[in-house]
Design a protein around this nucleic acid. Structure first.
Length: 110
DNA sequence: CCGATGACCATTT
DNA sequence: AAAATGGCCATCG
């Protein structure tokens, strides 16, 4: 495990707490961690998380509800299928009713 | 060691 | 309103 990934581990911790049937965005996580402008890093962390089968990266999409990272999955369409399996409607690589299935990391503060 | 790049987002031109 | 650019942290060459 990359001990040099301080930010990464924080991201993983949050993503792992995402309840089933819910999704979140990179920016939401970045903002929750205190680095609102480091949303890029969150996405980069997710790519690395694919190597570790302990993070549900398929529950993380961009702020548009678009499955931007589907191409990094194996198979790419597997991400969409995984979301639908959890009860999330996905169409054309886009989460339907995104606001309804959106999960805010702020709930971890409780 | 330095430069470039990446599952993004928000602001400015 | 659309397009371009800056910013962030970490990894790779």
């Amino acid at each position: 495990m990359p001990a040099s990934g301080d930010f990464f581990e924080q991201v993983y911790a949050v993503v792992r707490q995402i309840p089933e049937g819910k999704v979140t965005s990179y920016g939401a996580i970045a903002r929750f961690l205190g680095s609102a402008r480091s949303s890029r890093i969150v996405g980069y962390a997710m790519k690395a998380s694919l190597a570790m089968n302990e993070v549900p990266a398929h529950r993380v999409v961009n702020r548009n509800g678009l499955l931007t990272g589907r191409h990094h999955f194996s198979p790419p369409e597997g991400m969409q299928r995984a979301l639908e399996r959890e009860g999330i409607a996905v169409s054309d690589h886009q989460v339907q009713d995104f606001e309804s299935v959106f999960w805010n990391p702020e709930v971890l503060l409780a």
